[in-house]
Amino acid sequence: MLSSGDGRPASTGEGTPISEEEALRRLRQTSDPSQQYYGAWWLGRMRSQHPEAIPLLQGALRLRRPRDTGAGVEENAVARNAARALGKLAPAARCAIPDLLDTLEDPDDGLREAAARALGELQAPEAVAALCRRLSSGPEVAGGQRSDSPRLVEPCEALLEALGDIGVATPEVLAVVEPFTTHSRPIIRSAAARTLLQLSGDARWSGVLVELLDHPQLQVRRAALMDLGAAGWRPALEPIGRTLAENSLKLIALRGLVEQGKGDPGIPELLACMDSLL
């Protein structure tokens, strides 16, 4: 029943709508982690404003435990979804920032990843120092591949993107991020360039992203589309339009250009391009 990905339960989709009360009840009980998992996901997805939602999610986040046993994975799946949901409940969930900062130190890199993304969504300046510390050993160490899996030592993509979303553009932060623009994995280069573009507005980083729109791997082209959208880099309109990828992703990227960007090309041109991609 538990799945990875976006944290949506595999077998209990939108086909079985539940009420907010029911989602809270499922998260509150502790005998069935899969029910808690679904409850946590629901509260984030539906942007619950119930006063009990955030305290329950904080509680679920504290239930994490080491990942080495089968049962541990279950518990951390609930904690991961709780972290994701807290990110979706910005800005009300800012009170959970200390819990998420604790989670950023967890040995489970999947949990650190979820916590980093949530801290980015909450735009928590309190997290900048910890995010930078996780990345400071650079692309060779923090960005090195683990000996036991294809994953990196740190969840670099999430850590980098959180720094961009938080938006503290000090020379120290830029100096931590910049070495990742030469990482061996194009997805990490894309994330680093996006963050530098968001923080500095320096056009040279858009060049890295536009070049990745031509990458032979679809997955990389998709990442570069999302990153240009997140940075709202409007001069990329034309290259985005001709990228070989699904229109759905181009539309999300163009929405980013409209909502996050400024300058030329202007809104009418951006909307005309979106119309043509429907």
């Binding site: 929405r255 909502e259 909307l271 979106m274």
Partner: peptide
Amino acid sequence: SAENPTVVQLRAQL
């Protein structure tokens, strides 16, 4: 509104 992104509002205005 919080549920309706700016891009939809702008397109409806247009």
